[in-house]
Design a protein around this nucleic acid. Structure first.
Length: 524
DNA sequence: CGAATTTGACCAGCGC
DNA sequence: GCGCTGGTCAAATTCG
């Protein structure tokens, strides 16, 4: 039996002691209440006696005085009992409060133990790997979660890792949720065809799948058609700067098609998960037209297998996103499958003070700015994680990564991942995964005019611990929401008994290794 | 040589 | 009904 078992025993012991204490306190209260009843009874009897005495001798002054004194004594006794009752009630309330506090602390402690034991949980809100003195388990960052303007939790702790040349001794990792409750116009056309940020029409996958009933083999068809209610198929879009053809998300993918979508010369590649046979999860990968460095990856479906170690949130968020989308009571999506038109927008802001990568003056001067990550829950796209831009852009442009784009040509010339290959949209995705030399951070010198957004995005893309931190924060948030709502609305999903439900914790934002190559690439 | 990728063909939905 | 589009299939090709 490991630490977990000990903590379990501790919980039991704690509960027993608290229960005993509670019982004792309650017993005392009951006794006092009985005493109170007795005193009332005594008072009644005394009054009867007084009446009797009155009837016997109404003119006896001495007896009357005695009885009056007796009454006052009884009255005082009653008052004392009442005060004791109040005190005991307060004691019970305090005990209950302490009990719940201890329960909460125990839950947190237990979660930490599981975090250490479970290699799939990358809850590391520590800084970068460049700090040698850093103890990942002892230096959690400031994590503040604002949800609908309500602070759900906040902890702050000093960080030992100090970025060179900067006065900050603490990385403030602030996870802010903003709920945009602005209503979109009800428009059936929007429901049928969603317009993607790159201007291409994007028909929801699930509608096709459910209509055609012949997607990728019968097993998949059955899974989709029987397990997922209409319009609810989990869907996660991730926008991230990525130099490789696909994002390394820990899962194995097999490319089964490629299509040039209308409005975007960059072809859209179609992948299916090959970790387990019959896994229905698909993903689409396409470069953003406005900013070729942005890779739009759309995941759809729920893994029917435990995710491999290192599988990302993007690959596994199907369940999380579904929970988020279907279970969040504040989510404007109704639970009866009707799509509402509200735009559910949230912004995760990360003041990133303590980044050793940010050594150039431009980056440093903006070091206190916030990095905005937009998990934009769109009724038609599902969850959209935008890991591309900074807080200085306008909302829309920030979401779509437009502001950074100068022109396509400039973009292509500006990114190292394009340098070894001419711009050939038709074979763009899927062919260039092996000729990536050096990431954005390790790219050629003389990029002083590179925008802040690119620097920040590069940090997000190149700093694995920051990605993990972001992922953990978002994951915990989504899990929290799922838990708070799951009791009333259990997720209507199947095929995720081991994999997706548990794997919803495993968020790793798309990453490049510092060398600019993914640790694992599904394409070759 | 087996596995993965490429790519043209095919299918279904949707709008006109 | 026809054309357009997105998504998938499967034979051909490439790669390790």
């Amino acid at each position: 039996m490991g630490p977990a078992g000990e903590t379990t025993n501790m919980e039991i012991d704690l509960s027993l002691k608290l229960d005993a204490q509670l019982q004792k306190t309650q017993q005392q209260t009951q006794d006092h209440q009985e005493l109170g009843e007795f005193s009332v009874e005594g008072k009644r009897k005394a009054e009867e006696a007084i009446e009797e005495d009155k009837s016997l001798d109404n003119n006896s002054l001495s007896a009357e005085t005695m009885k009056t004194e007796e009454l006052s004594v009884l009255q005082m006794e009653m008052d004392r009992m009442n005060q004791e009752n109040k005190a005991l009630r307060k004691a019970i309330e305090q005990t209950m409060k302490d009990y719940y506090d201890l329960q909460m602390k125990f839950a947190v402690a237990q979660q930490n133990v599981q975090t250490k034991d479970d290699p799939r949980t990358f809850l590391s809100l520590t800084g970068t790997s460049d700090c040698p003195n850093q103890d990942q388990n002892k230096s959690p960052r400031f994590l503040k979660i604002n949800h609908h303007q309500t602070v759900l939790s906040s902890t702050s702790q000093k960080n030992d890792c100090t970025a060179e040349g900067r006065g900050h001794d603490q990385l403030g990792l602030s996870l802010t949720l903003q709920s945009n409750t602005g209503q979109l116009k009800e428009d059936d056309d929007i429901r049928n065809v969603e317009t993607k940020e790159d201007g291409t029409a994007f028909t929801p996958l699930h509608s096709k799948i459910q209509r055609t009933g012949s997607v990728g083999g019968g097993n998949i068809t059955n899974h989709v058609s029987t397990s997922t209610p209409p319009n609810r198929k989990a869907r996660v879009s991730v926008r991230a700067r990525c130099e490789t053809a696909t994002m390394n998300d820990g899962c194995q993918w097999r490319k089964y098609g490629q299509k040039t979508a209308k409005g975007n010369p960059c072809p859209r590649a179609y992948f299916r998960c090959t970790v387990a046979p019959g896994c229905p999860v698909r993903k689409q990968v396409q470069r953003c037209l406005e900013d070729m460095s942005i890779l739009i990856t759309t995941y759809e479906g729920t893994h029917n297998h435990p995710l491999p170690v290192g599988a990302t949130a993007m690959a596994s968020t199907a369940s999380s996103e579904a929970s988020f989308m279907l279970l969040d009571s504040s989510n404007p999506l109704s639970t009866d499958g009707t799509l509402l038109s509200s735009n559910f927008n949230r912004t995760y802001q990360f003041p990133y003070h303590n980044i050793p990568h940010m050594t150039n003056p431009i980056s440093t001067s903006y070091a206190s700015n916030l990095i905005n990550i937009h998990p934009n829950i769109d009724p038609f796209k599902g969850l959209v994680l935008d890991l591309t831009n900074n807080a200085n852009d306008s909302a829309d442009a920030r979401q779509f990564g437009i502001n950074n784009a100068t022109s396509s040509t400039q973009q292509l010339m500006g990114y190292s991942w394009m340098r070894n290959k001419p711009f050939l949209p038709s074979n763009y995705i899927g062919n260039n995964s092996n000729n990536i030399g050096g990431g954005m951070m390790g790219g050629p010198k003389g990029e002083g005019n590179k925008s802040l957004a690119e620097n920040v995005s590069a940090i997000v893309a190149s700093d694995p611990k920051f990605r993990v931190s972001v992922a953990a924060a978002i994951s915990s948030l989504i899990n929290k929401e799922s838990q708070t709502t799951s009791t009333s609305h259990p997720p209507p999903r199947d095929g995720e008994s081991g994999g997706s439900s548990s794997s919803s914790k495993n968020w790793i934002l798309e990453s490049l290794s510092p060398s600019g190559k993914p640790a694992q690439n599904s394409t070759r």
